[in-house]
Design a protein around this nucleic acid. Structure first.
Length: 658
RNA sequence: CGGGGAGUGGCUCAGCCUGGUAGAGCACCUGGUUCGGGACCAGGGGGUCGGAGGUUCAAAUCCUCUCUCCCCGACCA
């Protein structure tokens, strides 16, 4: 109210002009325009009960004719994925640079609604903080991540030359607060969260808002006394995340995920299936198994070993020109499953200093290396293929003819010599074919363990679609399902971090025995714009997209088909006022445009309900159109508001019941 | 970072090969006719052709360098 009075006075200070009212109205409609940082708080509901005077009441209405909603008939050529095209066409966003976007009115409204849902749910389990986006170097040095983050971290210097970075995640900062403030087990558990801008200098921003360099994240961090406590915090987040995504109208799956460089034991991603996604998910249609391909396993059918030749001992065979698996298989008339494939890498180990180590990975000819798993098994930070000289140095052989027989390997991974790592599916295998580390030669009758050994055996392969589900039931019986692989986008991720940060940064509390202990941590993220993007990817058609009422910028648009007709205009105004009174976000399309233009625009921008005020209004009827189904029903003007309210309430009820 | 593509009014694009000083549709402004799925007529405004340098009497067009954006890959707590 202070704002309104102050503005009122300013406006009165000079002779009133007709446009003053309009301008005043504009500001009143947008109380946030005067807030310095409306990103931090959702648009507060205006205190409707406290409003006085007709002017204010009527000014509440959002009239399309007064708004800036720059819809585009055609999508800019730069946009490829559906969500990107539609966000641009619907006037939600405009691009400023690669992976950098302006949010316009509709985009920001939708955004604020998503944030409001996230906040409402997160407040049930945690406490909201707000940490800075610009961060000093020191905490990152303490955790060891100043170096690890590499070029993905935006770095800058202040005027004194001190190093700063733009926050890409906040484990360090939250942990520093915990270290400084938490003293006793009695203060645990704690769940602290924030909704804040993150910066990541992505090597390749892409797909509109799917991979960007500045985005908004809800990130939370839990501090518990012990593993059981962490399990609880993790489960709380799991439950709350499910509610958040459900309320936002997303169809999602929770999948097992790789922990990556975050460290930690368990991690779960919340994924939305869409071809625009960058992740591959393996899931079982029979049981509930679902995992990121970086993590997924499968049950392999036993391989029928081929018969040995000669006395069964390894035999050198001249195989000219057979460098590829397919050539070798054809030459020996065997299945690729009986061939041993070698993929040779140089692996980076990060410690006090960075060192590169030779690694030879062996697996079945018909399998593919999963580099995420491989790095995990090795404890490597990066991988790159060996070059020819390195192949010669470590394996003494040329590409295409590499094999495990006769290799000198280290006993421990990532030593000075060669690390030989085999996929578990090779253990116990017999009579296989492999390269001889000699141009144009292979060896047959090769048995794992007898003819070659290894530094370590691990699961380092990617599962293939159609392989058997790895799950077993309570009685130990195998699941009968076959895995299917689909593309998805990650909208949330929850991690059990363990002690990595609390230990590194020296956070300690006293337990009930007065003994110093390190709290155990979890970290949990939700990408706010990815919710919007995923929702659009999930529900769009030729005309535009459809958002759930919970996250749409407006719940209902009242389309006055012909504003030249005063009766229609008045009916529209009145109906919109009723919808407002019912607590719905209403947009009144009072533009002097042809009906077709307004219908197209309404469909484009994703508002879930539309009420057409047209010819039938004379007989007291309007049309209620659902964007999702396209279905239209005639309802009495007097009933329309209640009908929309009922549908929206049902949608919310449905979400709540899940 | 490797590979590919593109920069010409706000948007989509033509013109470039074969140099001669910029065009269409949509959008925008004015007037009129229209008015239920992106109307029509008439008139009008708006572009140093991403930037720099060069060749030439003359460059959107040819050459060199550079910047930006998009796609594939690498990468991606």
């Amino acid at each position: 109210m202070d704002t309104w009075q102050a503005l009122g006075r300013t406006a009165q200070a000079r002779p009133r002009r007709p446009e003053d009212d309009e301008h005043l109205e504009w500001i009143l409609v947008h109380p946030n325009a005067l807030r310095p940082c409306n990103n931090r708080r959702p648009a507060p509901e205006m205190p409707r009960a406290n409003t006085d005077g007709k002017a204010l009441k009527s000014s509440f209405m959002h009239r399309w004719s007064k708004l800036f909603v720059p819809t585009l008939r055609e999508a800019p050529a730069d946009a490829e994925v559906a969500s990107h095209k539609f966000l641009l066409r619907a006037g939600y966003v405009r691009q400023l640079g690669a992976g950098i976007y302006n949010y316009l009115f509709l985009g920001q409204r939708s955004f604020n609604k998503i944030i409001a849902i996230v906040r409402e749910e997160m407040d049930k389990i945690g406490q909201e903080f707000y940490l800075p986006g610009i961060l000093p170097r020191e905490p990152w040095e303490e955790s060891g991540r100043w170096g690890v983050m590499g070029d993905n971290m935006f770095r800058l210097k202040d005027r004194k030359g001190a190093d700063l970075c733009l926050g890409m995640t906040h484990e360090e900062i939250m942990t520093s607060i915990a270290r400084n403030e938490l003293r006793s087990y009695k203060q645990l558990p704690q769940i602290w969260y924030q909704i804040q801008t993150k910066f990541r200098d992505e090597p390749r921003p892409k797909s509109g808002l799917l991979r960007v360099r500045q985005f908004t994240m809800k990130d939370s961090y839990s501090f518990d006394l012990n593993a059981a406590g962490l399990d609880k915090s993790f489960d709380l987040h799991d439950q709350v995340y499910r509610r958040i995504f459900t309320r936002c109208g997303l169809k999602f799956v929770a999948v097992e995920a790789d922990s990556g460089s975050m460290g930690g034991s368990q991690s779960q991603e919340f994924m939305v299936y869409t071809d625009a996604g960058e992740d591959l998910i393996a899931s079982c249609p029979v049981c509930n198994y679902a995992a990121n391909l970086e993590k997924a396993t499968s049950r392999l059918e036993p391989v029928t070993e081929i018969d040995p030749t000669g006395d069964g001992s390894p035999e050198l065979v001249h195989t000219p020109g057979c460098a590829a698996i397919a050539d070798v298989a054809a030459f020996f008339k065997i299945s690729p499953a009986s061939d041993i494939k070698c993929v040779a890498y140089m692996a980076l180990k990060r410690g006090a200093k960075e060192t590169w180590h030779g690694v030879a990975a062996f697996l079945r000819g018909d399998h593919q290396v999963n580099e995420t798993k491989l790095m995990g098994a090795l404890g490597a930070a990066e991988l790159r293929p060996m070059v020819a000289e390195e192949l010669e140095q470590y394996l003494h052989g040329p590409a295409g003819y590499l094999g495990p027989v006769g290799l000198n390997h280290d006993a421990q991974p990532m030593g000075d010599g060669l690390t030989v790592i085999i996929d578990k599916s090779l253990e116990g295998r017999k009579n296989m074919v492999c390269g001889a580390n000699k141009l144009d030669y292979h060896i047959r009758n090769v048995c794992a363990g007898r003819d070659f050994t290894w530094t370590l055996a691990a699961d380092i392969r990617s599962v293939n679609e159609g392989e058997a589900c790895p799950q077993t039931d309570a009685h130990g019986a195998s699941c009968s399902g076959k895995l299917v692989v689909g593309k998805a986008v990650e909208v949330g991720h929850i991690f059990k971090l363990g002690y990595k940060y609390s230990e590194a940064m020296g956070a300690r509390v006293l337990d009930e025995n007065g003994k110093e202990v390190t709290p155990i941590m979890g970290s949990y993220g939700i990408g706010i714009e990815r919710i919007l993007t995923a929702a659009i990817e999930q529900k769009n058609d030729a005309n535009g997209f459809c958002l759930a009422a919970s996250i749409a910028p407006f719940t209902v648009v009242v389309t006055v088909t012909n504003v030249g007709d005063q009766a229609l205009r008045e009916t529209g105004e009145q109906l919109a006022a009723e919808l407002e009174a019912a607590g719905l976000d209403v947009l009144l399309d009072d533009r002097d445009e042809r009906a077709g233009v307004k219908f197209k625009d309404a469909d484009l921008v994703g508002i879930p309900y539309r009420i057409n005020v047209g010819k039938k209004a004379a007989s007291g009827l309007v049309e209620l159109v659902s964007r999702a189904t396209g279905q239209s029903v005639d309802v009495a003007v007097a009933e329309a508001a209640a009908q929309v309210k009922q549908r929206v309430d049902e949608e919310r009820l449905l979400a709540d019941s899940q």
